[in-house]
Design a protein around this nucleic acid. Structure first.
Length: 558
RNA sequence: GCCGCGUUGGUCAAGGGGUUAAGACGCCUCCCUUUCACGGAGGAAUCACGGGUUCGAAUCCCGUACGUGGUACCA
């Protein structure tokens, strides 16, 4: 039932335990062995420390999809006691955006998924910025040329454009630079050695392209999608090393994943079509046995219409796509993030984790620790998920409700500070938070839900009580004020008790008096229990507000 | 166009040959609360379509449709 394979790996051993899938029915009885659902699950990899990487390019703000990729990498790493590495893929110098790198680090930190190793925390596999690794890649590109798996190409962009035009004119559907036409182009395969050498002596820019042989079948295992087989016919001779000496993603990802000993490579589904190139590169470079396990993550789609969620969608659709506010360096426009909108990081990552993955349990609210415990990459879906902002808000509401006051206090204080609301009594704020948190979907809701505890309401909506206002009610509140000012107590239950007593003496139903009382104290009809409010407001403030509204009513009536 | 990947309510999803096809968000009704919420009870709404295989298909196979991604000296 169990076969054990030993594969030499970095001088140590990589042991793979292979659970051979048993026949379900065997010799007339059921074999009680749990059946793995996917082929890759039959492999348990031991003795090689799990290392994953998140490798964004610093070309702008980090959006939802990127954060989720980072999150899944992180969860997987922590689940397997592995390392989560942050690498920056900045090989396209034309797209470099100032501040993006720092922004990425800040976002990850806010989310609580800070890397074990990377840019800001160098380990043994640096540098972690690809632009600083430039010289490394050239060596491997040359190695590929020497082994016949790559070649130098001298075509100018104009010549490549002409090739495409030519193919288009011929009615070709495949306009790529590849096996069909590489010999018509200017490269070290079509040219003689002398011609190639001569071209090297000129300063004509050149690139290194991978040589893809047609008709080959590339097979690899995807931890989410299972076995994948693609043929090389549709794959072009991708550029590996650009004219400026920088590698393209294809070369860089393979070289760095190898050098950084990455064991599992998780990335967006958009990479699936070029996965054969990467698998081939691992093979051509002679590193096949160290190739990481792949998983191509589903895309996050726009809630309405079609297409994957992009950085531009946020504003247009009325929800953020960034964790933190992002200032576009070109337009100087500031796009608020989930944080600024009033999201708790726990809620944000909880929501993100559930978008494309489900534990199989009924539980939906997971802390980061619980996510780590329950996460499994094979349960990640293979299809894209539409982002639903309503559900995102629900997660936040749940998290606010469940969060302890101590956790919410600094967040609320910060929001109050920004709103210019002074907090004299922090202890009172704690009580208020506890009282109103279940009414707050976003942290910013705390302002509306609790401002009347700290400031006199700006407007008193007397129009909601005016139609039913009369002298008896007026008398009631006058008596209430007298009673409250003389009372030797100030507790919610006792306030309620005397309120009802005075009402009954005046032959009034408490019900018709509580709304006016609420308007007097809050200004509007919302908020927690009214006697709780009066209690926290204190005697003087309560009486002051009642009298103020009484005066207002008197003026309006006359 | 070509190539890849996908498709369970409006959305997120469980289920992977036999289920009355879970649960959550949102929506609606009622209860609780003499406010607004929370909470509780209930409701509407689904296996993209067509063929197979099978005693039996949401589940396996094929085709179609639709969606989505790739098709750069971008990642």
């Amino acid at each position: 039932m169990v076969a054990i394979q030993r594969i030499s790996c970095f001088g140590s051993f990589l042991i793979r335990i292979r659970l051979v899938r048993p026949a379900k029915q065997f010799a007339g009885f059921f074999v009680p062995v749990p059946e793995p659902t996917l082929p890759w699950q039959r492999y348990l990899c031991c003795m090689r420390k799990v290392r994953v990487r998140f490798a964004p390019s610093p070309t702008g703000g980090l959006h939802l999809g990127g954060v989720r990729t980072a999150l899944y990498n992180y969860l997987f790493a922590k689940k397997h006691d592995g390392d989560f590495v942050l690498r920056v893929e900045d090989t396209d110098q034309t797209r470099f955006v100032e501040g993006a790198e720092k922004y990425i680090i800040d976002c990850l930190a806010w989310c609580g998924i800070a890397p074990d190793e990377g840019l800001h925390r160098p380990g043994n596999f640096g540098p972690y910025r690809q632009s600083e690794r430039k010289d490394l890649y050239k060596k491997f590109a040359e190695q590929l040329v020497e082994s016949g798996h790559a070649y130098h190409a001298f075509d100018t962009p104009l010549e490549i454009e002409e090739l495409r035009e030519r193919l288009k004119a011929k009615g070709e559907s495949n306009l790529q630079y590849g096996h069909q036409n590489r010999l018509e182009m200017r490269n070290s395969l079509s040219l003689s050695d002398e011609e190639t050498k001569a071209l090297f002596k000129t300063d004509l820019p050149h690139v290194v392209r991978i040589k893809i042989n047609p008709g080959e079948h590339v097979r690899f295992k995807d931890m989410i999608r299972g076995d994948i087989e693609m043929d090389t016919n549709g794959v072009d001779d991708k550029v590996l090393l650009k004219a400026d000496g920088m590698p393209t993603y294809h070369l860089a990802v393979v070289v760095d994943d190898y050098l950084m000993k990455i064991t599992h490579a998780f990335r967006g589904e958009e990479w699936l079509p070029s996965a054969p190139v990467h698998v081939l590169l691992w093979k051509y470079l002679g590193w096949e046995k160290d190739m990481p396990e792949w998983a191509h993550l589903p895309l996050i789609l726009k809630p309405e219409g079609n297409g994957k969620l992009s950085k531009r969608d946020g504003q247009r659709l009325g929800f953020p796509v960034f964790p933190l506010a992002w200032k576009d360096p070109v337009s100087n426009e500031i796009l608020p993030g989930f944080k600024e909108l009033g999201f708790l990081p726990d809620a944000f990552i909880n929501m993100l984790a559930m978008l494309g993955w489900a534990s199989g349990m009924e539980q939906e609210i997971f802390s980061l620790e619980e996510l780590i415990e329950n996460f499994s990459i094979e349960k990640v879906h293979s299809s894209g998920a539409k982002f639903d902002f309503e559900k995102a808000k629900w997660f936040n509401h749940e998290w606010i409700k469940r969060s302890a006051v101590e956790k919410l206090l600094p967040e609320v204080k910060e929001i109050f500070r920004k709103e210019g609301i002074a907090i004299a009594d922090e202890h009172k704020l704690e009580k208020v938070i506890d009282l109103v948190k279940e009414r707050c979907i976003l942290l910013t809701d705390f302002v509306h839900q609790s401002i009347f505890f700290f400031e006199t309401p700006a407007t008193i909506h007397i129009e909601t009580i005016l139609p039913k206002w009369n002298d008896v009610k007026n008398l009631f509140f006058t008596e209430l004020v007298r009673n409250y000012s003389l009372a030797n107590f100030w507790k919610a239950e006792e306030l309620e008790h005397s309120f009802k007593e005075i009402a009954s003496v005046n032959r009034l139903k408490p019900g018709e008096l509580m709304l006016p009382f609420r308007i007097m104290l809050v200004g509007d009809k919302y908020g927690p229990g009214i006697f709780e409010i009066a209690y926290l407001l204190g005697r003087d403030e309560t009486i002051k507000r009642v009298q103020h509204t009484l005066n207002l009513l008197a003026q309006t009536k006359s």
